[in-house]
Amino acid sequence: MADVARVAGVSSQTVSRVSNGYPGVTEETRRQVLAAMKELGYRPNSAARALKRGEFRTIGVILFSLSTTGNVRTLEAIATSAAEEGYAVTLLPVAVPTQDEVRGAFSRLGELAVDAVIVIMEVHLLDAATVALPPTAKVVVADSDAGDRYSVVDTDQAGGSRAAVRHLLDLGHRTVWHLAGPEESFAAQRRAAAWHATLTEAGRVPPPLVRGDWSAESGYRAGLRLAEETDCTAVFAANDQMALGLLRALQERGRRVPRDVSVIGFDDIPESGSFLPPLTTVHQDFAEVGRRCVAGVLRQMRLQSTEPGTALVPTRLVLRDSTAPPPPPGPE
């Protein structure tokens, strides 16, 4: 910094003001300092800045899976929103979602020097009373049921599921089968519970739940089973990938969609409009989830406090060609 000041003909304090973007420097002086920085190859020391300011301008993200569409789109929004606020993102994938792994992830992020942490998880890890994140950490959790202890941002899983089931009932279907996600997933549990409650409130008997693992292959296997259920005229799949496999299985078994069986998915992935037939589904705004996560940790940092509670991002039903009234009873 002293070398830059000598070449530019200014004080070290002026170099510091230009380097940190502070006001009170004329445009001509600023240009002189920047030219001197370029000539000398000067780069501000980010570690020294962090020590002086007490912040690292970095947000850590603990993520359990990069294989799901929702997580990738949420992460993209987090990175974009953080950059717009002048923050970098440090990503720490966790292979096995256990209490020890989460604690280890927080420890490693501490060594990497971050100001706050966003946790993207699809399991009930934070629901257990034995799991406690560092009490002084600024944390926002996406997709969890820990709003009484942490700040949580989630999609309105129940509202979207209710809209899907009601749509099928309104079309005239006697009941709705459900192809659920994995048991350990918070989102899958919320969607399944809303499916069951909506049918029960409507006076309908919920059929046996069919379980998948989010993949199209598991949807295909479930579809082969559901194709044999002659009274199955409507299926609510917990995500679009499983719905894709379901559509294939029904077609292979001669069950036409939507003439014989109506199918609804959840997520509204970019490809869902190109399924055959185009898929009716519940739209999730993953980008908004990511933006709210960043806004949440920045607010905690500025207020120097945590904010327990859950913020729900609304969903909406997207109607396409995979749903229709049930087939008439009896032979055609």
Rank of each mutant, 00 (worst) to 15 (best):
G54P: 03
V119W: 00
V96T: 13
K38F: 04
V131S: 06
T68V: 02
F106Y: 15
T90E: 11
A113L: 15
R49M: 03
L75Y: 06
R43I: 07
H124M: 12
A88V: 05
K52A: 11
R73P: 00
F64E: 15
A82K: 01
T69Q: 03
E55M: 13
E122N: 05
R73F: 06
E55V: 06
I62G: 14
L75W: 07
A105D: 06
S67A: 04
A132E: 09
T90W: 01
V72Q: 05
F56A: 07
G41T: 09
D100T: 08
P93D: 03
T98P: 02
V89N: 09
I118F: 08
E101P: 00
I78G: 00
G104Y: 01
L125Y: 01
R43Q: 14
P44N: 13
A48Q: 10
V123G: 04
A88H: 12
V102P: 03
T130Y: 03
V123Y: 07
L40E: 06
G86Q: 10
V96Y: 09
V131E: 08
A129C: 12
L63P: 01
F106K: 10
L91F: 13
E122A: 04
V89H: 04
L63R: 10
S81Q: 14
G54D: 10
A88F: 09
V94N: 07
A88K: 02
R49E: 06
G60T: 04
T90D: 00
E39L: 00
V94M: 13
E39F: 00
F106H: 14
I59S: 09
A79L: 02
A48M: 12
I78L: 02
S46W: 08
I62V: 15
S81V: 02
A105V: 10
G70S: 11
G70N: 06
G41C: 11
A88I: 01
S65P: 02
P93R: 05
E85L: 08
A83K: 12
M121W: 01
I62E: 15
K38R: 11
M121E: 10
I120Y: 08
F106P: 02
P44K: 03
L66T: 12
L75C: 05
A88S: 14
R49G: 03
V96L: 08
E39T: 01
I62F: 10
